[in-house]
């Protein structure tokens, strides 16, 4: 039974494997570009294990960011994970010893696979959750370590690779835009951060933006989307 479960989890994880190896490599190349060796990439992918945030963490390291900035940035960037946890409260009940790990490893991609598993006969649901989470993180660690090695091999040719972070966020932004009808939150995010960027400049606009966005969104809560036929 375990063998069947592991094999099934592996097959389910294949699309994530492709994504995590490539995105992990992008992160590794970036980190290496700042002078960090492969063990730093391994440690970050092992301890943080959050894609977008690790790209941003390279920036935080490069700029020697303050710890409060680092914490606030992580809070707003990863806030959506709260939502995943709320969804998985029931399914992860009774996970036993593996529970802390599957909660820790609940990334966007893993969530997309565990939130509605359609498991065949003979596949153990809890084992499936555990193995899938573990495999996905292995791909991520592997990719990021490979990225640091690739980065040091390519040297000068990696100039401009930092744009992969911009590209990543643009793609996620477009995907979210297309996936929602209410574009006001996205426009608030755009408007508030551009405003603070123009007012305060590139070095000081981030924290005020995070505060401003949160306040604006809370104000927006009073104006729910009207439910009507389109």
């Amino acid at each position: 039974m375990r063998k069947k479960t592991v094999r099934y989890a592996f097959r389910a994880s294949l699309p994530v494997m492709a994504g995590y190896l490539v995105l992990g490599m992008g992160f590794g190349v970036l980190l290496q570009g700042q002078g960090y060796g492969w063990w730093w990439a391994a440690a970050m992918s092992l301890l943080i294990y959050a894609g977008s945030m690790q790209y941003l963490a390279v920036d935080l390291l490069a700029g020697g960011a303050g710890l409060i900035t680092a914490a606030l940035m992580t809070l707003v960037v990863n806030f959506r994970h709260l939502f995943y946890g709320v969804t998985m409260l029931e399914p992860y009940r009774g996970m036993g010893k593996a529970k802390p790990y599957v909660i820790f490893a609940l990334t966007d991609e893993t969530f997309s696979l565990v939130c509605q598993p359609d498991l065949p006969q003979g596949v153990d649901r809890k084992e499936y959750y555990f193995w899938l989470s573990l495999m996905n993180q292995s791909y991520w660690i592997l990719g990021s370590v490979a990225g640091t090695l690739l980065g040091s091999a390519l040297g000068e040719y990696t100039r401009g690779i930092e744009f992969s972070m911009t590209a990543l966020f643009v793609v996620i932004f477009l995907g979210q835009w297309e996936g929602t009808r209410d574009h006001r939150p996205a426009l608030i995010g755009l408007g508030v951060s551009v405003l603070f960027l123009l007012l305060l400049g590139p070095d000081g606009f981030l924290i005020p933006s995070m505060g401003g966005i949160t306040l604006a969104l809370l104000a927006l809560k009073r104006f729910p989307v009207r439910k009507e036929g389109e």
Binding site: R80, V86, G189, S193, L217
Partner: peptide
């Protein structure tokens, strides 16, 4: 917030 923050934050990250 879990519903509306991601879209707004991603816009902020692009900026």
């Amino acid at each position: 917030l879990g519903k509306v923050l991601p879209g707004a934050v991603m816009a902020m990250l692009v900026v």
